[in-house]
Design a binder for these strands. Structure first.
Length: 577
DNA sequence: AGCTGGATTGGG
DNA sequence: AGAACCCAATCCAGCT
Protein backbone atom coordinates (compact mmCIF):
# COMPACT_ATOMS: atom_id res chain seq x y z
CA UNK A 1 0.00 0.00 0.00
CA UNK A 2 2.85 2.33 -0.99
CA UNK A 3 3.10 6.08 -0.59
CA UNK A 4 3.56 8.12 2.54
CA UNK A 5 -0.11 9.01 3.01
CA UNK A 6 -1.66 7.00 5.82
CA UNK A 7 -5.10 5.85 4.68
CA UNK A 8 -8.11 7.07 6.64
CA UNK A 9 -10.14 4.10 5.46
CA UNK A 10 -9.28 0.68 4.10
CA UNK A 11 -12.09 -1.09 2.29
CA UNK A 12 -11.79 -4.88 2.25
CA UNK A 13 -13.57 -7.20 -0.16
CA UNK A 14 -13.18 -10.78 -1.23
CA UNK A 15 -13.96 -12.67 -4.41
CA UNK A 16 -12.76 -15.92 -5.94
CA UNK A 17 -10.49 -16.73 -3.06
CA UNK A 18 -8.62 -13.43 -3.04
CA UNK A 19 -8.88 -10.43 -0.76
CA UNK A 20 -8.64 -6.92 -2.19
CA UNK A 21 -7.84 -3.91 -0.03
CA UNK A 22 -8.51 -0.37 -1.21
CA UNK A 23 -7.00 2.53 0.70
CA UNK A 24 -8.94 5.79 0.79
CA UNK A 25 -7.99 9.21 2.10
CA UNK A 26 -10.19 11.19 4.42
CA UNK A 27 -12.11 12.62 1.45
CA UNK A 28 -12.85 9.13 0.17
CA UNK A 29 -10.47 9.32 -2.78
CA UNK A 30 -8.60 6.17 -3.66
CA UNK A 31 -4.93 6.09 -2.66
CA UNK A 32 -4.17 2.60 -3.95
CA UNK A 33 -5.22 -1.02 -3.91
CA UNK A 34 -3.63 -4.34 -3.24
CA UNK A 35 -4.43 -8.05 -3.60
CA UNK A 36 -3.71 -10.18 -0.60
CA UNK A 37 -3.60 -13.94 -0.33
CA UNK A 38 -5.98 -15.24 2.30
CA UNK A 39 -3.09 -16.85 4.12
CA UNK A 40 -1.43 -13.41 4.42
CA UNK A 41 -4.51 -11.48 5.50
CA UNK A 42 -4.01 -11.61 9.25
CA UNK A 43 -0.42 -10.40 9.20
CA UNK A 44 -1.22 -7.80 6.54
CA UNK A 45 -4.04 -6.32 8.61
CA UNK A 46 -2.03 -6.47 11.83
CA UNK A 47 0.86 -4.68 10.15
CA UNK A 48 -1.24 -1.80 8.78
CA UNK A 49 -3.22 -1.56 12.01
CA UNK A 50 0.05 -1.18 13.91
CA UNK A 51 1.28 1.56 11.58
CA UNK A 52 -1.76 3.73 10.96
CA UNK A 53 -4.89 2.22 12.58
CA UNK A 54 -7.27 3.02 9.70
CA UNK A 55 -11.01 2.53 9.95
CA UNK A 56 -11.59 -0.87 8.33
CA UNK A 57 -14.60 -0.96 6.04
CA UNK A 58 -16.13 -4.36 5.38
CA UNK A 59 -19.43 -5.93 4.47
CA UNK A 60 -20.10 -7.85 7.65
CA UNK A 61 -17.95 -7.69 10.77
CA UNK A 62 -18.30 -11.30 12.03
CA UNK A 63 -17.16 -12.64 8.68
CA UNK A 64 -13.91 -10.66 8.74
CA UNK A 65 -13.14 -10.04 12.35
CA UNK A 66 -13.73 -13.48 13.84
CA UNK A 67 -10.77 -14.82 11.90
CA UNK A 68 -8.58 -11.82 12.73
CA UNK A 69 -9.32 -11.83 16.44
CA UNK A 70 -8.78 -15.58 16.75
CA UNK A 71 -5.30 -14.94 15.35
CA UNK A 72 -4.71 -12.12 17.82
CA UNK A 73 -5.13 -9.26 15.31
CA UNK A 74 -7.24 -6.72 17.16
CA UNK A 75 -8.35 -3.62 15.26
CA UNK A 76 -9.35 -0.31 16.81
CA UNK A 77 -12.10 0.84 14.46
CA UNK A 78 -14.32 -0.38 11.66
CA UNK A 79 -17.33 0.58 9.55
CA UNK A 80 -19.81 -2.27 9.22
CA UNK A 81 -21.59 -1.72 5.90
CA UNK A 82 -24.48 -4.07 6.61
CA UNK A 83 -25.37 -2.59 9.99
CA UNK A 84 -24.88 1.01 8.86
CA UNK A 85 -26.93 0.40 5.74
CA UNK A 86 -29.88 -0.72 7.85
CA UNK A 87 -29.66 2.42 9.98
CA UNK A 88 -29.30 4.86 7.08
CA UNK A 89 -31.94 3.17 4.93
CA UNK A 90 -34.57 3.64 7.64
CA UNK A 91 -33.44 6.91 9.19
CA UNK A 92 -35.70 9.87 8.54
CA UNK A 93 -32.67 12.12 8.95
CA UNK A 94 -31.41 10.86 5.58
CA UNK A 95 -32.76 12.52 2.44
CA UNK A 96 -35.49 10.26 0.98
CA UNK A 97 -33.92 10.51 -2.49
CA UNK A 98 -30.50 9.31 -1.29
CA UNK A 99 -29.42 6.17 -3.21
CA UNK A 100 -28.80 4.32 0.07
CA UNK A 101 -32.60 4.13 0.37
CA UNK A 102 -32.97 2.11 -2.84
CA UNK A 103 -33.72 -1.58 -2.45
CA UNK A 104 -30.49 -3.52 -2.79
CA UNK A 105 -28.57 -6.59 -1.78
CA UNK A 106 -27.47 -4.64 1.32
CA UNK A 107 -30.90 -5.16 2.78
CA UNK A 108 -29.90 -8.79 3.38
CA UNK A 109 -29.91 -10.07 6.91
CA UNK A 110 -26.78 -11.26 8.65
CA UNK A 111 -25.57 -14.73 8.00
CA UNK A 112 -26.05 -16.47 11.29
CA UNK A 113 -23.49 -18.77 12.74
CA UNK A 114 -25.06 -22.04 13.69
CA UNK A 115 -22.03 -23.78 15.09
CA UNK A 116 -22.07 -23.62 18.87
CA UNK A 117 -18.31 -23.84 18.91
CA UNK A 118 -16.15 -21.43 16.98
CA UNK A 119 -16.65 -18.77 14.33
CA UNK A 120 -16.51 -19.81 10.66
CA UNK A 121 -13.31 -19.42 8.68
CA UNK A 122 -13.03 -16.53 6.24
CA UNK A 123 -14.33 -18.20 3.12
CA UNK A 124 -16.43 -20.86 4.77
CA UNK A 125 -19.67 -18.96 4.41
CA UNK A 126 -19.11 -18.31 0.70
CA UNK A 127 -19.33 -22.01 0.07
CA UNK A 128 -22.67 -22.41 1.82
CA UNK A 129 -25.68 -22.69 -0.43
CA UNK A 130 -27.82 -19.71 -1.31
CA UNK A 131 -25.49 -17.06 0.18
CA UNK A 132 -28.16 -14.81 1.67
CA UNK A 133 -25.90 -12.19 3.20
CA UNK A 134 -24.74 -8.83 1.88
CA UNK A 135 -22.27 -8.73 -1.03
CA UNK A 136 -18.68 -9.50 -0.06
CA UNK A 137 -16.77 -8.20 -3.10
CA UNK A 138 -14.75 -5.01 -2.97
CA UNK A 139 -16.54 -3.13 -5.77
CA UNK A 140 -19.88 -3.56 -4.04
CA UNK A 141 -18.32 -2.47 -0.77
CA UNK A 142 -16.75 0.66 -2.33
CA UNK A 143 -20.01 1.68 -4.00
CA UNK A 144 -22.06 1.14 -0.87
CA UNK A 145 -19.52 2.95 1.28
CA UNK A 146 -19.71 5.96 -1.03
CA UNK A 147 -23.52 5.90 -0.85
CA UNK A 148 -23.39 5.79 2.94
CA UNK A 149 -20.89 8.65 3.22
CA UNK A 150 -23.06 10.76 0.91
CA UNK A 151 -26.19 9.84 2.86
CA UNK A 152 -24.59 10.92 6.13
CA UNK A 153 -22.96 14.13 4.91
CA UNK A 154 -26.16 15.16 3.13
CA UNK A 155 -28.40 14.34 6.07
CA UNK A 156 -30.15 16.65 8.47
CA UNK A 157 -27.77 15.64 11.29
CA UNK A 158 -24.42 14.43 9.94
CA UNK A 159 -22.77 14.54 13.35
CA UNK A 160 -25.34 12.35 15.00
CA UNK A 161 -25.38 9.79 12.21
CA UNK A 162 -21.57 9.66 12.20
CA UNK A 163 -21.67 8.97 15.90
CA UNK A 164 -24.38 6.35 15.54
CA UNK A 165 -22.71 4.48 12.69
CA UNK A 166 -19.37 4.55 14.50
CA UNK A 167 -20.96 3.29 17.72
CA UNK A 168 -22.89 0.57 15.93
CA UNK A 169 -19.70 -0.57 14.19
CA UNK A 170 -17.75 -0.55 17.45
CA UNK A 171 -20.50 -2.74 18.88
CA UNK A 172 -19.98 -5.18 16.04
CA UNK A 173 -16.29 -5.45 16.93
CA UNK A 174 -17.09 -5.89 20.61
CA UNK A 175 -19.64 -8.64 19.95
CA UNK A 176 -17.02 -10.66 18.07
CA UNK A 177 -14.40 -9.97 20.72
CA UNK A 178 -16.66 -11.01 23.59
CA UNK A 179 -17.43 -14.27 21.87
CA UNK A 180 -13.73 -14.90 21.32
CA UNK A 181 -12.84 -14.02 24.91
CA UNK A 182 -15.83 -15.80 26.44
CA UNK A 183 -17.47 -15.30 29.80
CA UNK A 184 -15.43 -17.14 32.45
CA UNK A 185 -17.68 -19.95 33.60
CA UNK A 186 -17.15 -22.39 36.45
CA UNK A 187 -18.74 -25.63 35.24
CA UNK A 188 -18.11 -27.32 38.61
CA UNK A 189 -20.03 -24.60 40.41
CA UNK A 190 -22.80 -24.77 37.82
CA UNK A 191 -23.06 -28.53 38.36
CA UNK A 192 -23.11 -28.00 42.13
CA UNK A 193 -26.04 -25.57 41.79
CA UNK A 194 -27.88 -28.03 39.56
CA UNK A 195 -27.38 -30.93 41.99
CA UNK A 196 -28.33 -28.78 44.96
CA UNK A 197 -31.49 -27.56 43.27
CA UNK A 198 -32.58 -30.46 41.09
CA UNK A 199 -31.00 -33.39 42.94
CA UNK A 200 -28.62 -36.08 41.75
CA UNK A 201 -29.01 -37.40 38.24
CA UNK A 202 -29.91 -41.08 38.23
CA UNK A 203 -27.12 -43.15 36.60
CA UNK A 204 -29.56 -44.73 34.15
CA UNK A 205 -30.93 -41.43 32.89
CA UNK A 206 -34.32 -39.91 33.62
CA UNK A 207 -35.19 -36.85 35.69
CA UNK A 208 -32.98 -35.82 38.63
CA UNK A 209 -34.11 -36.79 42.13
CA UNK A 210 -35.75 -33.62 43.42
CA UNK A 211 -37.52 -32.97 40.13
CA UNK A 212 -38.87 -36.54 40.18
CA UNK A 213 -40.03 -36.08 43.77
CA UNK A 214 -41.99 -32.93 43.03
CA UNK A 215 -43.50 -34.59 39.94
CA UNK A 216 -44.64 -37.45 42.16
CA UNK A 217 -46.18 -35.03 44.67
CA UNK A 218 -48.04 -33.24 41.88
CA UNK A 219 -49.37 -36.51 40.48
CA UNK A 220 -50.46 -37.63 43.96
CA UNK A 221 -52.35 -34.38 44.50
CA UNK A 222 -53.99 -34.80 41.08
CA UNK A 223 -54.89 -38.39 41.95
CA UNK A 224 -53.42 -39.45 38.62
CA UNK A 225 -50.13 -41.35 38.75
CA UNK A 226 -49.56 -40.97 35.00
CA UNK A 227 -50.57 -37.32 34.61
CA UNK A 228 -48.57 -35.45 32.00
CA UNK A 229 -47.06 -32.31 33.52
CA UNK A 230 -45.20 -30.95 30.51
CA UNK A 231 -48.17 -30.64 28.16
CA UNK A 232 -50.13 -27.49 28.86
CA UNK A 233 -53.53 -28.77 27.57
CA UNK A 234 -53.24 -32.07 29.44
CA UNK A 235 -52.14 -30.37 32.64
CA UNK A 236 -55.01 -27.92 32.36
CA UNK A 237 -57.54 -30.75 32.01
CA UNK A 238 -56.01 -32.60 34.95
CA UNK A 239 -56.30 -29.46 37.09
CA UNK A 240 -59.94 -29.00 36.08
CA UNK A 241 -60.67 -32.60 37.06
CA UNK A 242 -59.59 -31.90 40.66
CA UNK A 243 -61.52 -28.63 40.77
CA UNK A 244 -58.72 -26.11 40.12
CA UNK A 245 -60.59 -23.96 37.61
CA UNK A 246 -57.77 -21.88 36.14
CA UNK A 247 -57.77 -20.58 32.58
CA UNK A 248 -54.06 -21.06 32.09
CA UNK A 249 -51.24 -22.90 33.80
CA UNK A 250 -49.11 -19.82 34.24
CA UNK A 251 -47.39 -19.32 37.55
CA UNK A 252 -49.17 -16.14 38.59
CA UNK A 253 -52.62 -17.60 38.00
CA UNK A 254 -51.85 -20.85 39.80
CA UNK A 255 -50.42 -18.91 42.73
CA UNK A 256 -53.85 -17.40 43.40
CA UNK A 257 -55.43 -20.82 43.87
CA UNK A 258 -55.74 -22.81 47.07
CA UNK A 259 -55.31 -26.51 46.50
CA UNK A 260 -52.77 -29.13 47.61
CA UNK A 261 -51.53 -29.45 44.02
CA UNK A 262 -50.43 -25.82 43.74
CA UNK A 263 -47.31 -25.81 45.92
CA UNK A 264 -45.69 -28.91 44.38
CA UNK A 265 -46.72 -27.85 40.88
CA UNK A 266 -45.08 -24.45 41.20
CA UNK A 267 -41.94 -26.14 42.48
CA UNK A 268 -42.05 -28.62 39.61
CA UNK A 269 -42.34 -25.85 37.04
CA UNK A 270 -39.44 -23.95 38.56
CA UNK A 271 -37.15 -26.97 38.65
CA UNK A 272 -38.22 -28.15 35.24
CA UNK A 273 -37.46 -24.75 33.77
CA UNK A 274 -33.93 -24.75 35.19
CA UNK A 275 -33.30 -28.24 33.85
CA UNK A 276 -34.53 -27.57 30.32
CA UNK A 277 -33.14 -24.03 29.90
CA UNK A 278 -29.82 -24.17 31.76
CA UNK A 279 -29.33 -27.77 32.85
CA UNK A 280 -26.57 -30.25 32.12
CA UNK A 281 -27.42 -30.34 28.42
CA UNK A 282 -26.92 -26.57 28.19
CA UNK A 283 -23.67 -26.81 30.15
CA UNK A 284 -22.38 -29.49 27.82
CA UNK A 285 -23.33 -27.56 24.70
CA UNK A 286 -22.38 -24.01 25.64
CA UNK A 287 -19.54 -24.14 28.13
CA UNK A 288 -16.18 -25.37 26.90
CA UNK A 289 -12.79 -24.93 28.48
CA UNK A 290 -14.11 -22.67 31.22
CA UNK A 291 -15.87 -20.21 28.92
CA UNK A 292 -19.44 -19.50 27.89
CA UNK A 293 -19.28 -18.19 24.32
CA UNK A 294 -22.65 -16.89 23.18
CA UNK A 295 -23.29 -15.27 19.81
CA UNK A 296 -24.16 -11.62 20.36
CA UNK A 297 -26.18 -9.96 17.58
CA UNK A 298 -25.70 -6.17 17.52
CA UNK A 299 -28.66 -4.32 16.11
CA UNK A 300 -30.69 -7.53 16.34
CA UNK A 301 -33.69 -5.74 17.84
CA UNK A 302 -35.68 -2.98 16.06
CA UNK A 303 -34.87 -0.50 18.79
CA UNK A 304 -31.14 -1.07 18.31
CA UNK A 305 -30.70 -3.29 21.30
CA UNK A 306 -28.60 -6.37 20.86
CA UNK A 307 -30.10 -9.80 20.48
CA UNK A 308 -28.36 -13.11 20.96
CA UNK A 309 -28.48 -16.30 19.04
CA UNK A 310 -28.07 -19.53 20.90
CA UNK A 311 -27.20 -20.15 24.50
CA UNK A 312 -29.76 -17.72 25.84
CA UNK A 313 -27.04 -15.19 26.65
CA UNK A 314 -29.56 -12.47 27.37
CA UNK A 315 -31.55 -14.58 29.81
CA UNK A 316 -28.98 -16.02 32.18
CA UNK A 317 -31.02 -16.72 35.32
CA UNK A 318 -29.88 -14.99 38.50
CA UNK A 319 -29.64 -18.43 40.03
CA UNK A 320 -26.54 -19.18 37.94
CA UNK A 321 -24.60 -15.96 38.49
CA UNK A 322 -22.36 -17.70 41.00
CA UNK A 323 -21.08 -19.86 38.15
CA UNK A 324 -19.64 -16.79 36.43
CA UNK A 325 -16.21 -16.84 38.05
CA UNK A 326 -12.97 -15.05 37.25
CA UNK A 327 -9.85 -17.06 36.47
CA UNK A 328 -7.32 -17.48 39.31
CA UNK A 329 -5.50 -14.19 39.83
CA UNK A 330 -8.16 -12.37 37.83
CA UNK A 331 -11.28 -10.48 38.87
CA UNK A 332 -14.61 -9.49 37.43
CA UNK A 333 -15.72 -5.89 37.30
CA UNK A 334 -19.51 -6.07 37.28
CA UNK A 335 -21.27 -2.81 36.53
CA UNK A 336 -24.82 -1.82 35.78
CA UNK A 337 -26.49 1.54 35.22
CA UNK A 338 -29.14 2.63 37.67
CA UNK A 339 -32.41 3.56 35.93
CA UNK A 340 -30.84 4.00 32.50
CA UNK A 341 -34.04 4.59 30.54
CA UNK A 342 -35.62 7.34 32.68
CA UNK A 343 -32.26 9.14 32.75
CA UNK A 344 -32.13 8.95 28.96
CA UNK A 345 -35.66 10.29 28.82
CA UNK A 346 -34.65 13.28 30.96
CA UNK A 347 -31.75 13.99 28.59
CA UNK A 348 -33.58 13.73 25.27
CA UNK A 349 -36.48 15.84 26.51
CA UNK A 350 -34.18 18.34 28.24
CA UNK A 351 -36.34 17.95 31.31
CA UNK A 352 -34.19 19.65 33.91
CA UNK A 353 -36.62 18.80 36.71
CA UNK A 354 -36.36 15.08 36.02
CA UNK A 355 -32.60 15.42 35.57
CA UNK A 356 -32.40 17.15 38.93
CA UNK A 357 -34.34 14.31 40.54
CA UNK A 358 -31.81 11.88 39.05
CA UNK A 359 -28.63 13.76 39.84
CA UNK A 360 -26.35 12.15 42.36
CA UNK A 361 -28.94 9.72 43.70
CA UNK A 362 -31.46 7.02 43.04
CA UNK A 363 -33.84 8.53 40.49
CA UNK A 364 -36.95 7.12 42.11
CA UNK A 365 -35.96 8.54 45.48
CA UNK A 366 -35.40 11.87 43.77
CA UNK A 367 -38.92 11.80 42.36
CA UNK A 368 -40.34 11.10 45.82
CA UNK A 369 -38.33 13.98 47.28
CA UNK A 370 -39.72 16.29 44.60
CA UNK A 371 -43.16 15.52 45.99
CA UNK A 372 -44.68 14.09 42.81
CA UNK A 373 -45.51 10.75 44.43
CA UNK A 374 -45.38 9.33 47.94
CA UNK A 375 -43.16 6.25 47.79
CA UNK A 376 -40.24 4.85 45.81
CA UNK A 377 -42.47 2.01 44.65
CA UNK A 378 -45.00 4.49 43.28
CA UNK A 379 -42.25 6.45 41.53
CA UNK A 380 -40.96 3.31 39.87
CA UNK A 381 -44.25 2.02 38.53
CA UNK A 382 -45.29 5.51 37.44
CA UNK A 383 -42.08 6.02 35.43
CA UNK A 384 -42.24 2.56 33.90
CA UNK A 385 -45.93 3.07 33.15
CA UNK A 386 -45.16 6.36 31.40
CA UNK A 387 -42.45 4.83 29.24
CA UNK A 388 -44.44 1.72 28.35
CA UNK A 389 -47.81 3.38 27.91
CA UNK A 390 -49.76 1.76 30.73
CA UNK A 391 -53.31 3.07 31.03
CA UNK A 392 -54.94 0.99 33.73
CA UNK A 393 -54.50 0.08 37.35
CA UNK A 394 -52.01 1.72 39.65
CA UNK A 395 -49.70 3.08 36.94
CA UNK A 396 -52.67 4.50 35.03
CA UNK A 397 -53.59 6.37 38.19
CA UNK A 398 -50.04 7.62 38.91
CA UNK A 399 -48.81 8.67 35.45
CA UNK A 400 -50.92 11.90 35.41
CA UNK A 401 -49.05 13.06 38.52
CA UNK A 402 -45.77 12.65 36.65
CA UNK A 403 -47.22 14.65 33.76
CA UNK A 404 -47.71 17.57 36.10
CA UNK A 405 -44.25 17.27 37.66
CA UNK A 406 -42.28 16.53 34.48
CA UNK A 407 -44.24 17.97 31.55
CA UNK A 408 -41.29 18.01 29.14
CA UNK A 409 -40.32 14.38 29.65
CA UNK A 410 -43.88 13.14 29.61
CA UNK A 411 -44.66 15.36 26.63
CA UNK A 412 -41.90 13.72 24.65
CA UNK A 413 -43.17 10.16 25.15
CA UNK A 414 -46.78 11.24 24.70
CA UNK A 415 -45.84 12.90 21.38
CA UNK A 416 -44.01 9.75 20.28
CA UNK A 417 -47.11 7.71 21.08
CA UNK A 418 -49.36 10.06 19.13
CA UNK A 419 -47.04 9.93 16.13
CA UNK A 420 -47.12 6.14 16.18
CA UNK A 421 -50.90 6.00 16.51
CA UNK A 422 -51.16 8.26 13.46
CA UNK A 423 -48.93 5.95 11.43
CA UNK A 424 -45.82 8.12 11.66
CA UNK A 425 -42.19 7.28 12.27
CA UNK A 426 -40.19 8.27 15.35
CA UNK A 427 -36.43 8.41 15.85
CA UNK A 428 -33.90 8.02 18.59
CA UNK A 429 -31.57 10.82 19.67
CA UNK A 430 -28.86 9.76 17.20
CA UNK A 431 -31.27 9.05 14.35
CA UNK A 432 -32.30 5.41 14.32
CA UNK A 433 -35.89 5.45 13.07
CA UNK A 434 -38.73 3.11 13.84
CA UNK A 435 -40.02 0.96 11.01
CA UNK A 436 -43.07 2.32 9.14
CA UNK A 437 -46.43 0.69 9.83
CA UNK A 438 -47.13 -2.60 8.09
CA UNK A 439 -49.47 -2.76 5.11
CA UNK A 440 -52.01 -4.64 7.23
CA UNK A 441 -51.89 -1.91 9.86
CA UNK A 442 -52.45 0.87 7.34
CA UNK A 443 -55.23 -1.09 5.62
CA UNK A 444 -56.99 -1.58 8.95
CA UNK A 445 -56.80 2.15 9.67
CA UNK A 446 -58.24 3.17 6.29
CA UNK A 447 -60.96 0.55 6.48
CA UNK A 448 -62.11 1.95 9.80
CA UNK A 449 -62.71 5.37 8.28
CA UNK A 450 -64.88 4.10 5.45
CA UNK A 451 -68.64 4.66 5.66
CA UNK A 452 -69.47 0.97 5.72
CA UNK A 453 -66.93 0.13 8.45
CA UNK A 454 -68.30 -2.18 11.10
CA UNK A 455 -67.92 -1.65 14.81
CA UNK A 456 -65.44 -4.51 14.83
CA UNK A 457 -63.36 -2.76 12.14
CA UNK A 458 -63.23 0.39 14.24
CA UNK A 459 -62.40 -1.44 17.45
CA UNK A 460 -59.58 -3.34 15.83
CA UNK A 461 -58.16 -0.24 14.14
CA UNK A 462 -58.20 1.62 17.44
CA UNK A 463 -56.54 -1.26 19.28
CA UNK A 464 -53.81 -1.58 16.64
CA UNK A 465 -53.26 2.18 16.72
CA UNK A 466 -52.83 2.10 20.51
CA UNK A 467 -50.47 -0.87 20.23
CA UNK A 468 -48.32 0.98 17.76
CA UNK A 469 -48.42 4.10 19.90
CA UNK A 470 -47.03 2.15 22.85
CA UNK A 471 -44.31 0.79 20.58
CA UNK A 472 -43.18 4.19 19.27
CA UNK A 473 -43.50 5.68 22.78
CA UNK A 474 -41.05 3.12 24.06
CA UNK A 475 -38.88 3.12 20.93
CA UNK A 476 -37.46 6.60 21.47
CA UNK A 477 -36.41 5.80 25.03
CA UNK A 478 -35.27 2.20 24.66
CA UNK A 479 -33.50 2.99 21.38
CA UNK A 480 -31.64 6.00 22.78
CA UNK A 481 -30.70 3.99 25.86
CA UNK A 482 -29.22 1.39 23.51
CA UNK A 483 -27.21 4.16 21.84
CA UNK A 484 -25.92 5.42 25.15
CA UNK A 485 -24.93 1.87 26.07
CA UNK A 486 -23.08 1.43 22.75
CA UNK A 487 -21.17 4.65 23.34
CA UNK A 488 -20.34 3.45 26.86
CA UNK A 489 -19.09 0.10 25.57
CA UNK A 490 -17.07 1.61 22.74
CA UNK A 491 -15.33 4.10 25.00
CA UNK A 492 -14.72 1.47 27.66
CA UNK A 493 -13.18 -0.86 25.08
CA UNK A 494 -10.64 1.80 24.18
CA UNK A 495 -9.77 2.54 27.81
CA UNK A 496 -9.28 -1.14 28.63
CA UNK A 497 -7.04 -1.63 25.60
CA UNK A 498 -4.75 1.11 26.85
CA UNK A 499 -4.10 -0.59 30.19
CA UNK A 500 -0.74 -2.38 30.32
CA UNK A 501 -0.67 -6.14 29.67
CA UNK A 502 0.39 -8.47 32.47
CA UNK A 503 3.30 -10.91 32.27
CA UNK A 504 2.86 -14.12 30.35
CA UNK A 505 2.69 -16.24 33.48
CA UNK A 506 -0.33 -14.20 34.65
CA UNK A 507 -2.19 -14.70 31.37
CA UNK A 508 -5.71 -16.16 31.09
CA UNK A 509 -4.97 -18.36 28.08
CA UNK A 510 -8.53 -19.50 27.61
CA UNK A 511 -9.52 -15.93 26.77
CA UNK A 512 -7.85 -16.17 23.37
CA UNK A 513 -4.53 -14.66 22.45
CA UNK A 514 -5.87 -11.16 21.88
CA UNK A 515 -7.20 -10.89 25.45
CA UNK A 516 -5.16 -13.27 27.58
CA UNK A 517 -3.00 -10.57 29.12
CA UNK A 518 -5.33 -7.57 29.25
CA UNK A 519 -8.55 -6.49 30.89
CA UNK A 520 -11.35 -7.12 28.41
CA UNK A 521 -15.11 -7.02 28.03
CA UNK A 522 -16.65 -10.40 28.73
CA UNK A 523 -20.39 -9.71 28.81
CA UNK A 524 -22.94 -7.03 27.97
CA UNK A 525 -26.66 -6.96 28.63
CA UNK A 526 -28.53 -3.71 27.81
CA UNK A 527 -27.35 -1.77 30.86
CA UNK A 528 -24.77 -4.07 32.41
CA UNK A 529 -21.18 -4.99 31.57
CA UNK A 530 -18.78 -7.56 32.96
CA UNK A 531 -15.05 -6.97 32.51
CA UNK A 532 -12.57 -9.78 33.11
CA UNK A 533 -9.34 -8.28 34.39
CA UNK A 534 -6.04 -9.23 35.96
CA UNK A 535 -6.39 -8.61 39.69
CA UNK A 536 -3.78 -5.83 39.72
CA UNK A 537 -5.73 -3.86 37.11
CA UNK A 538 -9.15 -4.34 38.70
CA UNK A 539 -9.26 -0.85 40.21
CA UNK A 540 -8.16 0.73 36.95
CA UNK A 541 -10.72 -1.29 35.02
CA UNK A 542 -13.48 -0.24 37.42
CA UNK A 543 -12.40 3.38 37.00
CA UNK A 544 -12.48 2.92 33.23
CA UNK A 545 -16.07 1.68 33.45
CA UNK A 546 -17.06 4.78 35.40
CA UNK A 547 -15.12 7.20 33.20
CA UNK A 548 -16.56 5.65 30.05
CA UNK A 549 -20.09 6.21 31.33
CA UNK A 550 -19.36 9.90 31.91
CA UNK A 551 -17.80 10.17 28.47
CA UNK A 552 -20.80 8.48 26.82
CA UNK A 553 -23.09 11.01 28.48
CA UNK A 554 -20.95 13.90 27.18
CA UNK A 555 -20.76 12.41 23.71
CA UNK A 556 -24.52 12.08 23.34
CA UNK A 557 -25.90 14.87 25.49
CA UNK A 558 -23.08 17.42 25.74
CA UNK A 559 -23.21 19.47 28.91
CA UNK A 560 -26.83 18.71 29.80
CA UNK A 561 -26.65 18.45 33.59
CA UNK A 562 -27.34 14.77 34.15
CA UNK A 563 -25.32 11.89 35.53
CA UNK A 564 -25.61 8.20 34.77
CA UNK A 565 -25.12 6.42 38.07
CA UNK A 566 -23.38 3.09 38.07
CA UNK A 567 -23.30 0.26 40.53
CA UNK A 568 -19.73 -1.02 40.10
CA UNK A 569 -18.16 -3.83 42.06
CA UNK A 570 -15.02 -5.91 41.86
CA UNK A 571 -15.56 -9.55 42.71
CA UNK A 572 -14.64 -13.10 41.89
CA UNK A 573 -18.16 -14.02 40.81
CA UNK A 574 -20.98 -12.10 39.13
CA UNK A 575 -23.38 -12.87 41.96
CA UNK A 576 -25.40 -9.83 42.95
CA UNK A 577 -25.49 -9.23 46.68
C1' DA B 1 -40.17 -35.28 9.23
C1' DG B 2 -40.32 -30.56 9.48
C1' DC B 3 -42.50 -26.22 10.13
C1' DT B 4 -45.35 -22.79 12.73
C1' DG B 5 -47.67 -20.86 16.52
C1' DG B 6 -49.12 -20.90 21.39
C1' DA B 7 -47.88 -21.12 26.17
C1' DT B 8 -44.63 -20.37 29.48
C1' DT B 9 -40.66 -18.39 31.86
C1' DG B 10 -36.10 -16.33 31.90
C1' DG B 11 -33.67 -11.43 30.93
C1' DG B 12 -33.60 -5.93 30.51
C1' DA C 1 -48.93 -10.00 41.18
C1' DG C 2 -49.78 -8.02 36.80
C1' DA C 3 -49.96 -4.22 34.06
C1' DA C 4 -47.12 -1.89 29.89
C1' DC C 5 -42.34 -2.15 26.12
C1' DC C 6 -38.25 -5.00 23.80
C1' DC C 7 -36.74 -9.89 23.57
C1' DA C 8 -34.91 -15.75 23.36
C1' DA C 9 -35.49 -20.54 24.37
C1' DT C 10 -38.05 -24.49 25.29
C1' DC C 11 -41.74 -27.76 24.81
C1' DC C 12 -45.81 -29.25 22.80
C1' DA C 13 -49.82 -29.35 19.54
C1' DG C 14 -51.37 -29.24 15.20
C1' DC C 15 -50.50 -28.70 10.67
C1' DT C 16 -48.44 -29.89 5.89
Amino acid sequence: MGGSDAPAWVVLGRENGTVTAVALDAAGDELGRESIAVSELVSWVADLEGRSAPRWVWHDTPQWYAVLIDAGARVARCHDLRLCHAILRDSVLVDPSAPVKDRSAWDAAAQVETDAGRAPALFELDESAGAAGPPADVESALAEFARQRDAISGSAQPGRLRLLTAAESAGALIAVEMRAAGLPWDAVEHDRILVETLGERPPGGGPPARLAESAARVRAALGDPTASLDSQPKLLRALHRVGVLVESTSRWELAQQRHPVIEPLLEYKKLSRLLSANGWVWLEEWVADGRFRPVFVPGGVVTGRWASSGGGALQLPRQLRQAVRADPGWRLVVADVAQLEPRVLAAISHDTALAAAARGRDLYTGIVESGAVATRHEAKIAILGAMYGATTGEPGRLVPRLRRAYPRAMGLVDDAARTGEDGGVVSTWLGRSSPPPSAAWSAAQSRATEAEASGADETRARRWARDRGRFTRNFVVQGTAAEWALAWLADLRGRLASLPPVDHERAAPRSGIAFARRPHLAFFLHDEVIVHTPQEHADAAAQAVTDAAAQAARLLFGDFPLDFRLDVRIAETALKE
